[in-house]
Write a protein that binds this DNA or RNA. Structure first.
Lengths: 144, 144
DNA sequence: CTCCATCGTTGACAACCTCCACGATACCGC
DNA sequence: GCGGTATCGTGGAGGTTGTCAACGATGGAG
């Protein structure tokens, strides 16, 4: 990390991230979700035939043991269910329920609105550029 | 948070942040520091006449109660000291010691090297642009 | 002098991260 | 088939972080 802390990308990254996560968390609280749970729910909605918990962990950058609890909570809330994988009896496929889809939609809107404040100074072109850079940071260090 | 999770800036931000923080943490471990402590140390080095813990908390985006422990640990390690503020007996000015400067320099080099991997795909011009955007995200929501 | 704001500090509690271990299952070489 | 090895989900331990509410001490305004 170079000279002024204000120029350190790692620091700026984590500070901005903390800010956005905090805003999102309070917005999601009305829907009974935290960001992590919401992320899992969204991923579950995205794959029609379900996702392995290992896949979820890899996509989220989390330890698989964390995903267990998140899916537990979502399953308890009836937003997601674990189905047996017909091709591999070790894995459980996580799929969103109808209720999960509804909550995901409402929570997504709330989260979008909440993030609008911190991102207010960025135009759509810049956001796209930011997305691209953040994705490349991930791909530069992730094994896939 | 819009449709695909991979396009969600909040998610991308926290995932990239986690990645970089993890890499930095392991690099700083050799110097007996964690990122948070390192951040405080750098800020302490930046201000000649010392910083209030409240100022540190605001700059870092942390709760003041967290700063207490971080400064405690740095002080125990002899990297930083709390001086009485001649102008205000409530506050304690945090300043880096000579040892603190040395460790900051070595740790900074290690951290720089560690972050190089995840940032490998970004050129210097892009990094500058990223810095600018992250700073604007912060300033859009921070009360200062 | 009184009332109120601010500073550092402490404590409690939840969330998160990291790592290790286990049983169950799959896969590969033979 | 069979045996060794790898992978999956899960659980637990221990440390770090985030959030919030208090407290005593001090400063500042009226």
């Amino acid at each position: 990390m170079g000279q002024p802390l204000a120029d350190d990308l790692g620091f700026l990254l984590s500070r901005a991230s903390g800010l956005v996560v905090r805003a999102t968390n309070t917005a999601l609280a009305e829907h009974g979700l935290r960001v992590r749970q919401y992320s899992v729910l969204v991923l579950a909605c995205e794959s029609d035939d379900g996702s392995t918990q290992r896949e979820l962990a890899a996509a989220l950058g989390l330890d698989p043991s964390q995903v267990v609890l998140l899916v537990d909570e979502l399953e308890t809330g009836g937003l997601v269910e674990r189905r047996p994988d017909p091709a591999d009896r070790r894995t459980r496929l996580v799929v969103a329920t109808a209720a999960g889809w509804r909550v995901r939609e409402a929570a997504g809107a709330a989260a979008d609105a909440a993030v609008e404040t911190p991102l207010a100074l960025l135009g759509e072109a810049e956001r796209e550029r930011l997305r691209d850079m953040l994705t490349r940071i991930w791909s530069a260090a992730a094994p896939g």
